[in-house]
Structure formats: C-alpha cells, structure tokens
C-alpha cells in the first residue's frame, strides 16, 4: 500500500505533496489552538507503537497470508483526527527515510491515502456517527471495524487513481481497480476487526484515553468540512491536470520537452542512426539490430500515438554504446572514490 516514487509522476507527486503539506499545516494549527501537553508525548509514543505493531504479523485464517494492524483508524480514535493525521504522517516519513518503504516524492500520496482518508473521512463520517455521543464497547467495535474498512478502501482507491494518473504503469484503470478493491476489502475486514479489538481493549482498560480524543474532535467541525472540501477540490483538479499532463505530451512534459530543445536532438540521433546502418552493413555482427517501428503490433492507433514519442531506448547503437560507457564511467567514479576514501582512512592512522 506504500507507493514507491517509481510509480508516480512528478505532477501527481507534487499535487499530493501540496495537499498533504496543507493538511499538515492545518492540523498543526488546530492542535495548537487547544494545546494539551499530554498530546505531544502521546503522539510520539503511539506513533512508535503503530510502527512496532505493524511489524508484528498475524495469520489471516484459511489464506496462509498475513496481515497487520492498520494504523490510521486506531490513531484517530485514540488521538482525534488532527493529531492522528500528524502522527500517521510522521510514521510514513520515518518509514520512507529509513526503510525506503514508500518514496519521498510519493510521501504526499502515502500520507494522503493512509492518513487523510482514515482520519478526516472515515473517522468523522463513519466512526463518530456509529460510536456517537455515548459510546459503548459494541458501538466502538462496530464503528472502528467499518471505519477502518472504509478507510482502507478509500486508500486503495487513492493508490489506483494516483498510479493511473501518473501513467507509469500500464495497468488499465478498471483492471487495477478490480484488483485492488477486493484484495483490500478482504484485508480491510481483518484489519478492521483487529483495530476494533485493540480499541475496545483500551476502552475497557482506560476509557479516559479515548475521552481525550473525543474532546479535541468535538468542536470546529463545520470549519473542517469547508477545509476538507477545499483540499479535496485542489487534489481533484491537481489530479485531473496531471492526468492530462502525463497522457498527452502537450502538458507539463511537453513543456519540458520543448524547453530542453529535445526536438533538435532527434537529428544527431538520426544521423547516428544512418551511421549505424553503415556500421551494421560493415560488421554484420548484429544484422537485425535497431529500432523497428514497422514490426510492432499496432492494435491501437491512438494508444501508440500517445506513446511513441516517448520511446527513445535503442534508437541506435550509439545509445547502447553510450549507455555502456555511462555505466562504466559511473562505476569508475565509484571505484576511484573508494580508493581515495581508503587511502584517506589509512593515512591518519599511521
């Protein structure tokens, strides 16, 4: 569920970074408004707890696979939405920095999928509605289960939209959706039950902890709705914009394409291409070597039109020679640095 940088385009990553940064600043502001010195250590400690708990796996019956505690909803119930969102953001930041679990550019997406949906959608609209003013163990259990399931479904949907909008994966939207939602439905039910079990456990042992969260989320809800709406609008426009940007070369990429003067660049390639043809004839080591546009299966004319301009691998042997040399130089630089590093380490020791 943690998206990697490699799966997203800078436009999608940037849009969600903006949205997440806004949400973070807003949550921090709300948290400071009614400051409670209990919260800061509680957030840190609970974040560490979720982090550790996510690494303990339990077996999902009859599947042989394993699941773990979904963090967002548990945190929202224990801390209230603002503190929970910040805590979730911190967990994901640490995971991306220390374990490369979810990328840095994708951090916006991940915080949005795993923090925004459970904390600002599922918690107020599902959990609070079910648990109500006078929560009981049963209501809390039902609310937490349903809310974490919904949060996970929304998160999975977020992953699908962001991935497809980025255009890096060839998975069609519908196929990806049909893959992700049922899988996360199954996981979500189990995670929801576990989350609910943990929360009711706390409710029975330390009801005052849950009341601390209640207090902070009670007031200021209408303002929140407005903000949520604004941010959602920003995200949707950002998403649509970047979707166009990545599918058609006339969006952001097109701008880059032109600014860089890449079009002029096709010419040396072509000259190299003709050069290549000459070499091929001379050497004939790899006679059928090169860029064969004609032999491709053209199932879909428009699709290929979208993608052909992007194809630049193997335009010529020059590419392959150059690529090899680049890697060789990179390796050489690394090797030399290592030698220098060794000699430097050795010299002060003497």
């Amino acid at each position: 569920m943690h998206m990697a940088d490699a799966l997203i385009s800078p436009a999608v990553g940037g849009a969600l970074w903006t949205a997440t940064a806004g949400l973070t600043a807003w949550s921090a502001k709300k948290l400071n408004e009614d400051f409670d010195d209990r919260k800061v250590p509680l957030m840190g400690a609970l974040g560490a707890f979720v982090f550790a708990a996510q690494m303990i796996n339990f077996t999902i019956p009859a599947t042989g696979s394993s699941g773990h505690l979904g963090g967002g909803m548990a945190l929202a119930v224990l801390l209230g939405p603002y503190a929970a969102f910040l805590t979730m953001a911190s967990i994901l930041t640490i995971q991306s920095l220390f374990f490369a679990d979810g990328g840095l550019l994708a951090l916006g997406c991940n915080i949005f999928n795993l923090g925004f949906f459970p904390c600002f959608i599922a918690y107020p609209l599902i959990y609070k509605k079910i648990a109500g003013e006078n929560p009981s163990a049963g209501k809390i259990f039902a609310g937490a289960t349903l809310a974490s399931l919904a949060g996970l479904q929304l998160g999975a949907f977020g992953v699908v939209v962001e991935t497809v909008a980025s255009g890096i994966s060839d998975l069609p939207f519908s196929t990806f959706l049909l893959l992700m939602q049922p899988i996360h439905g199954a996981i979500g039910i189990v995670e929801g039950l576990v989350t609910a079990a943990v929360i009711t456990f706390v409710w029975k042992a330390r009801p005052e902890v849950l009341l601390l969260a209640e207090k902070s989320s009670a007031e200021g809800f209408s303002i929140k709705a407005v903000f949520v709406g604004l941010i959602a609008a920003a995200v949707i426009t950002g998403g649509i914009f970047s979707w166009f940007a990545s599918v058609h070369p006339d969006g952001l990429e097109w701008a880059l394409f032109h600014a860089s003067g890449k079009e002029e660049f096709r010419n040396p390639e072509e000259s190299a291409h003709s050069l290549l043809a000459g070499i091929q004839e001379k050497t004939a080591v790899m006679p059928d070597y090169g860029f064969k546009n004609s032999r491709t299966v053209q199932e879909d004319a428009t699709a290929s039109e979208e993608q052909w301009p992007a194809v630049s691998i193997g335009t010529s042997t020059a590419g392959i020679v150059g690529g090899g040399l680049t890697l060789f130089f990179a390796g050489l630089v690394g090797f030399l640095l290592r030698l220098i590093g060794r000699s430097r380490q050795a010299s002060p020791g003497r």
Binding site: A259, F265, S316, A318, I320, V321, G322, L325, T326
Partner: peptide, 14 residues
C-alpha cells in the same frame, strides 16, 4: 534530463 547524455556520448565515440 534535457540531453540524452549516453546517446551523445555514444554518437561521439562512434
């Protein structure tokens, strides 16, 4: 990002 360096390098070498 703007120039395909390996491509250029390869073309130059060849």
């Amino acid at each position: 990002r703007c120039f395909n360096l390996p491509q250029l390098l390869g073309a130059f070498v060849m």
